[in-house]
Structure formats: C-alpha cells, structure tokens
Lab assay of single mutants.
Amino acid sequence: KYFGTAKARYDFCARDRSELSLKEGDIIKILNKKGQQGWWRGEIYGRVGWFPANYVEEDYS
C-alpha cells in the first residue's frame, strides 16, 4: 500500500543503503511520510528507501 506519488524536482544522491537516489523527473511511490523530520520513504524502479521530502512535488491528482 502506498500514499500516492511524487515527482522528483531535483537529483538526490543516496549517502547510504537506507536512502533512495532520485533523478529530476522520477516518479516515486510514497510508502511512508513519518520518517525523520522532512524525510519520506518511497519506492522507485524496485528500490525502497528514504528521501528528502523537499526534493519532490507531491502529485494530488
């Protein structure tokens, strides 16, 4: 189950295995919004990890 999707506004390079690298334009499935302050958990291309919420724009459609 996921909470919708978000589109990456910027590139983000994961610093460890718990984080999710993003490329601008990627569409991420949002799995959890209750991580550390400002971090969401998501899935993209079969990978799961945490990413900074301010790097994405949530899709409300």
Rank of each mutant, 00 (worst) to 15 (best):
G42A: 05
G25V: 00
W39R: 09
T5K: 06
G4Q: 11
E57Y: 12
K33L: 01
D59S: 13
F51R: 02
K33A: 03
Q36T: 12
G25K: 05
K7N: 02
R47Y: 05
K29L: 13
Y55P: 01
S61A: 12
F3G: 08
E19C: 05
S61L: 12
I27N: 11
F51T: 02
W40A: 00
Y60W: 11
K1L: 10
G4C: 08
Y55I: 14
Q37K: 13
K34L: 08
S61C: 15
R9Q: 08
A8P: 04
L22Y: 03
W40D: 03
F12P: 00
D26T: 02
Y2R: 09
I27K: 09
Y60A: 12
I27G: 03
E24S: 13
G42R: 06
D59W: 14
P52W: 00
I28D: 00
F12Y: 15
G38A: 04
Y55Q: 06
Q36A: 13
E43S: 11
G35A: 07
A14L: 00
S21C: 06
A53K: 09
K23Q: 09
Y10L: 11
I44C: 14
S18V: 04
W39I: 06
W50V: 06
Y10S: 14
E24R: 15
E43Y: 03
Q37V: 13
Y2E: 09
I30G: 03
S18R: 11
W50T: 04
V56W: 05
R17L: 14
K7M: 14
F3E: 10
E19P: 04
L20P: 01
F3N: 10
V56I: 05
I28V: 14
R41T: 04
W39H: 05
T5R: 10
R9H: 05
R41Y: 12
I27W: 08
I30W: 01
E57S: 13
R41S: 07
N32E: 15
Y45G: 15
Y10T: 13
C13P: 10
Y10A: 14
D26C: 03
I28K: 02
S61W: 12
L22K: 01
I30C: 01
A6C: 12
K1G: 09
Y60Q: 12
K29G: 08
D59N: 15
G25A: 03
E24N: 11
K7H: 09
